[in-house]
Each structure stands twice: as structure tokens, then as C-alpha cells.
Amino acid sequence: MPEPIIETYELTKYYGNVKAVDHLNLTVYEGEIFGFLGPNGAGKTTTLLMLMGLTVPTSGTATVGGYDIIKESREVRRIAGMLPEGAGYYEDLTARQNLDYIGQLNDIPESEREKRIDELLEAVGLTKWANTKVEKFSRGMKQRLGIAEVLIKKPKIAFFDEPTIGLDPQGTKEVRDLMTQLNKEHGLTIFLSSHLLYEVQQTCHRVGIIRGGRLVAADTIENLSKNIAEKGRMVIEFKLTEIRSDLIRELEAINGVTHIKRGEDNRLYVYMESDRSREVSETITKHGSIILLMKPKEHSLEEIFLKYYEREA
């Protein structure tokens, strides 16, 4: 049974009248990659900043690794690292110097620091650039330096705020692979804020969906998808050898089938309120047509999340 490592209690942040985060209750378990999804302005960044003690909540609180984010925020920052949105570096310093400074701020003794810096530069592929000033770095290189800065403290939890934004496909894949690897090999709990659905699907075990500062759902993608499917209508796609018009009429007569759509290539889309796939296929066979293909039409990720985003709008 996994232990909760992040728990928020009615966490709230107002900017004037704007409810950036609104009574958020959320649990993240040790060792998981938790995806934090939401449209722009949903309150993802604000939540992360509060958890790391960079912004003070208006009300409510949270614990990270057992530490209270308000009373023990420094302890939180000892065991948790964050790659903030729009993170920046000391442009006049080299990658190594940047890392060294962050290492010093984490009270890592010098010999240990040097060792870790070498390892991290290797891990994020910056060894060749170790002694180059950061002003000469590309965006992707800076992002990798940022990840190294998060990891130098050997955190138990890492917060990444849209870590692949602005990266090319290669860089994106590298960052994702690195996250997965850190999670698998070191048991690092990762809290990933993103609005890239595919990214979340690829990497996250569980997702939380936030909208207008409120948590609308938190579950595995599979379950979220199932929920949407049950609530909405079911669609099954068929490919047949032939389609006669009386077949369509007969199918439409089946109790529970709402309507039929014809597609190209002898395809049929059967819309139903409840699962009638058995009756439908029997009727088709009775009419002498052969079913070449039959599969439930899946909701795309976009569809799923748009449904959640729109809900209680």
C-alpha cells in the first residue's frame, strides 16, 4: 500500500478576487508520477509555488513528505526540488558553477558536491558543456541544467512545471525518459504539471485534473476514460462485407440503439445508450453479411479531457 507523500487540505490562494486555487484537496502517493493537468490559468503553477513555499496560501495547508508547507517550508525544500515555470540561471556562470552554487545552498560538502555534479552533468548530457557559460546555452540545454539543479539535492519529490515546453521532439523524449528512469531506478516521486495530454499519458501513473482552481478528477487515465465512456454514449465501429438498407432499418429498431451512421468502405457506426453489441452483431449475421472488424470507438485523450474541462462550467 503506497503511502501518501503530498497531501493538500482545502489549499486556497486568492489574488485579489481571482481564485487561483480554490479549496484544493489532493493526495499524491510515494513513488508515483502524478500528472497535474489543466487548461491555462487553472492554478497549476500557483499550487506548485505554494507547495514549495514560494507563495503563501490564503487559507488551507498541505504537507509534503510529512512537513507542513507553511511552518516547515524550509524542510520541504530540503527533500523536494522544483523546476519552476520559466526557470532561469546565472548566465555569467558556467553550468558547473551554477550547479555548485545550488549544491552549496543545499549544504552538500565540497567533495560530495563535485562528485554529484560530474554524475549529473553526465546524466543530463552536459558534460561537454560543463565549463561553458550558460548565456551560450540553448533552451533545451538550460532545461537539462535545470533538471540537474533539481536533482543535486537528491530529492524524494520533484516538481516539474511544464518541463518540456519549448523543447524539440528529441529533447522532449529525453526529458520524459529521464523522468521515467528516475522514478523507476530511484523511486523518485514526480509531480508533473502539464497540459500536454500525450506527455501525461506516456509518463504518469495517475493524473489530477484542475479547472478554475478546483480539482475535478484524480485517477488513472484508464479509469477517467472509462468514466467518460459510461456517462456518454457508446459507439461501436463495424466493417462489413456488404450493407443493405434493410439491415440499417432493422438495426435501428433494436432497443437501446439510438442511431446508425454509415462510413466509407462499408463501415457502420452504431450509437447506443447501453451495450447492445451482441444483438447488433447477431442481426448483421442474420442478414448474411460478414463482420470483418468490430471495435468500440475509443474516446481520444482530447475528448476525455475536454469533457472534464467543460464539466460544471
Binding site: 513555499g53 522544483m82 519552476p84 539535492k153
Partner: peptide, 17 residues
């Protein structure tokens, strides 16, 4: 300068007051 460059949020994510 550190605020606009974003190094301040990185700095304040470290265990310091």
C-alpha cells in the same frame, strides 16, 4: 534582475530562508 531572469525562483526553491 534575478526576478526577471527566473533564477530567483530557482534560488528560493533551495532550503534557505
Amino acid at each position: 534582475k534575478e526576478r526577471t531572469s527566473g533564477s530567483l525562483s530557482m534560488l528560493l526553491s533551495q532550503p534557505i530562508y
